[in-house]
Design a protein around this nucleic acid. Sequence first.
DNA 1: AACCAACTACGAAATTATTCGTAATTCATT
DNA 2: AATGAATTACGAATAATTTCGTAGTTGGTT
Lengths: 129, 129
Amino acid sequence: MAAAQPLKPTDAELEILQVLWQNGPSTVRFVNDELNKTKEVGYTTTLKIMQLMTEKNMVRRDESNRSHVYEALLKEEATQKQLLNKFLDTTFRGSASRLVMQALGSHQTTPEELNQIRELLNKLEGGSK
Amino acid sequence: MAAAQPLKPTDAELEILQVLWQNGPSTVRFVNDELNKTKEVGYTTTLKIMQLMTEKNMVRRDESNRSHVYEALLKEEATQKQLLNKFLDTTFRGSASRLVMQALGSHQTTPEELNQIRELLNKLEGGSK
DNA sequence: AACCAACTACGAAATTATTCGTAATTCATT
DNA sequence: AATGAATTACGAATAATTTCGTAGTTGGTT
């Protein structure tokens, strides 16, 4: 045990991580309530998965209160990057540009976000033009 | 049976679809050989999954020859779009721009591809500037 | 100090996906 | 027309994940 950071979360684990990333350290009750805004899932199911995540060192648990408080140990950006790599590989055969084109083409993006992306493009191309 | 197009392929199915998309209609033997360039997988395993895919109408099978020839029915772009939607949701909470930034930031992209993306940005922003 | 609501622990069932062994079939070659 | 290599069909084992019931624990309130 005591596995290193690069552990790929499953779907259920990722949903829980999202709640923890967005809201900070939380109880099982809170996480389960959040999840139930989207889909029905039993309390003990959420509890169980969070217990497993604790064993895998994906989260840390503060047991000083009766209701344990869980905190994400996996970093959001690093985890996203890792999942992105795999997704890029399996779905787009590694072509980042094709993924980007698809993502931009079929999803709502605000002008501000587009500008951010444009700036990044400028940097990547060497700044000029 | 006779399910509609929007069927989410599993990982193993996606690997097979990639081979079919890249090489056109192929036999199990060919697909299995391709897969084995990357990872070890038994012939009957590949066969079985392709048979299941046939039942799900993900592929069509030409049985006129002894070695059946399988052809992808799912369209590459449509499938990618569908998987992208889900991935975007679960991993980036729906923020396409964050995904794009990550993808561009940490992956090799050629100047030509960057230009393609820039053109798309222009179109999305209303053409000017 | 008994009660009760909320919580944790744990085992096991259910679900989904993957893997493969074995038997049956086919066809080209002898 | 018998042989054998390659193929398909199929059932079942394995694996991975998710789900949840039940039992036990805890701590505040009466």
